[in-house]
Amino acid sequence: MPSVLVVDDEELVARSVAAYLEADGVQARVAGDAREGERLWRETRPDAVVLDVRLPGTSGLDLLRRMRSDADRTPVVLLSGLGSVDDRIIGLELGADDYLTKPFSPRELVLRVHALLRRGDIHPGDGSRPVTVGPLTLEPSTRSASLAGSEQVLAPREFDLLLFLAQHAGSTFGTRELLRRVWGWDFGDDSTVVVHVRRLRRKFEPDPSEPMLLTTVRGTGYRLGTADELTASLAEASR
């Protein structure tokens, strides 16, 4: 049975979310603040975390920062207040995988959590087979990625996005299509994709301000180069 940690100082919200998760076959634990949340996260190693941004004392963003600084890849769904755009952007920058704005439907949250728990299922073919695009190699079995032999630690959604683009190297995808095919959403904020692309560029591009590998096709979307293009771009950058 998968397990989920719910960290929210609003007890009614936390208990309601936990009840919906457990009714759907997920073991749920509840923490009322970041300190208790961090303790339970370290002790139980849940399969996913539902994390409120605005917690008393240490914020949810600070807890997320600690998790990712430990190279932890546990999927995280952020809960943010209505209109808290900055919190959502910062959370995605820190490595959150999804977010919902309060007030929200507990049922919708359960669906989002299940989507994260089965995120590998959206990719066709043999999920354990490495995907190679020139100097870029992705290992779905370990969810690791390396460029020219240099391995990078990726958050779950970063890996999902890069894997999808690598499986379709040379093709261009708009943000809406990426939300649908990588996140499994028919709705959502374009900034979710924009932030994840920016994070990937910081980790793989020789100069993130002048991307050569994962480029923007103006008015269309994002494109990961072909094997020959990635090889040529790295060679040019090393001159």
Rank of each mutant, 00 (worst) to 15 (best):
R181N: 11
A28R: 00
E36A: 15
M67W: 07
A232I: 06
W41I: 07
G81Y: 08
M67N: 04
G188A: 08
G25D: 05
G25Y: 06
M67S: 07
I90G: 11
V6G: 03
L109N: 03
L147M: 05
L200E: 05
G57P: 03
G25W: 06
S238D: 14
E151C: 09
P206S: 00
S69H: 10
L61S: 05
V182P: 04
A232R: 08
F204I: 03
R65Q: 15
S146F: 09
L179Y: 10
L92Y: 02
G149I: 00
V6L: 05
S191N: 14
V194E: 12
E11T: 15
L40M: 13
E22L: 07
D47V: 02
T226V: 08
L117C: 01
R143D: 13
H123Q: 13
T101W: 05
D97S: 07
P130A: 00
T175I: 12
P130Y: 02
I90C: 12
R107S: 13
P75Y: 00
A148H: 05
D72M: 05
G170N: 04
L154A: 00
L21S: 02
R180I: 12
T215P: 09
V30C: 03
E38N: 11
S80C: 09
D62T: 14
R35V: 14
P135Y: 02
V4G: 01
S238K: 13
K203S: 01
Q167N: 12
T44S: 13
I90L: 15
G219I: 03
S105Q: 14
V4F: 00
V30R: 00
E10I: 08
D186Y: 09
A18T: 01
P103Y: 10
L117W: 02
L55Y: 04
S171E: 14
D160V: 02
E177T: 15
R68I: 04
A227N: 04
L51Y: 00
D47M: 01
L116G: 00
L234D: 03
R143V: 10
V13I: 15
V131Y: 05
D24Q: 09
T192M: 12
F204C: 01
Q27W: 11
V131F: 06
R176F: 14
M67Y: 07
S144M: 12
I90M: 15
P135F: 00
F159H: 03
R202W: 15
F173Y: 10
L224I: 10
A155F: 12
S69C: 10
L138T: 03
L165R: 07
L214R: 03
T74N: 01
F159Y: 10
R54F: 10
D228H: 11
K203I: 02
M1V: 11
F159E: 01
D72W: 05
A169L: 08
L179Q: 15
D33M: 07
D97F: 04
E151I: 10
A23S: 12
V50L: 04
Y222D: 09
R45I: 08
E205K: 01
K102A: 14
V193G: 00
L224P: 06
L94Q: 04
R68W: 09
V85F: 11
L154D: 02
V193H: 00
L116K: 03
L117H: 03
W183N: 05
G127N: 13
E151S: 15
A169S: 14
E108W: 11
S150P: 08
R180T: 15
S150C: 11
L64P: 01
G57F: 04
S144Y: 10
T142N: 08
D9T: 07
